[in-house]
Amino acid sequence: MNPIVFIIDDDISIRRSLTFLLTARDFTVETFSSSEEFLEREKHDGTGCLILDINLEGKSGMELQDELIVLGSHLPIIFITSQGNLHLSVETIRKGAINFLQKPFEEEELLNSIREAFQLSESFKAEHDKSRSAKSLIDTLTKRETEILKFLITGMLNKQTAAELNIAEHTVQLHKLSICKKLGVKSIPEMITISRNAGLIP
């Protein structure tokens, strides 16, 4: 699936000219005239980036950035602005924006930013995918198995885990085998990696 360049700008001239420019470069482009319109779109799981005008009627670019962070979106943002509000750039970049471009920006500047954003998006995606598969593996475990997993990945022995849960050591051994089978791992370190990916431990 191709990465998508999302453009949110209330200025139609900017929207359509950037569309022409980026499609000429074989980018897939989607445009929106406001933050609200963008939020109505179904969540994009793939890679891509967001070219976001900071001055928007309704929800401003910065407000959308905050909201996307809350929503857990990993779409890298390139801010563009027609106003001289460069003082906002520090704030936006601190919150993870790729760049802060002032119109009229050079095409090259934009393209570099997009490329950088895509790379970031890729790695975000990979990270995200890993985490998601780990989570889905974890989800296959029963409640008891998840409970036992949480003890095991802290480095506890079967015997200690059994004592904590007040069950027989043997029962722990059986659950451990089932967990290994379900997660497709053979060792505790592997178990720890998946747990970390799934967000069970930091």
């Binding site: 200025d11 001239s13 900017i14 000219s17 950037l18 420019l21 027609s82 119109k103 009229p104």
Partner: peptide, 30 residues
Amino acid sequence: TASLSHELFQPLAAIRYTAEAGKLFIDSDK
């Protein structure tokens, strides 16, 4: 004028990007 000058950049930038895109389309025969 501060805001107007920036306002002026919008169409100017748009013209530039569109022209740029046109050139690219021609180059790539599309």
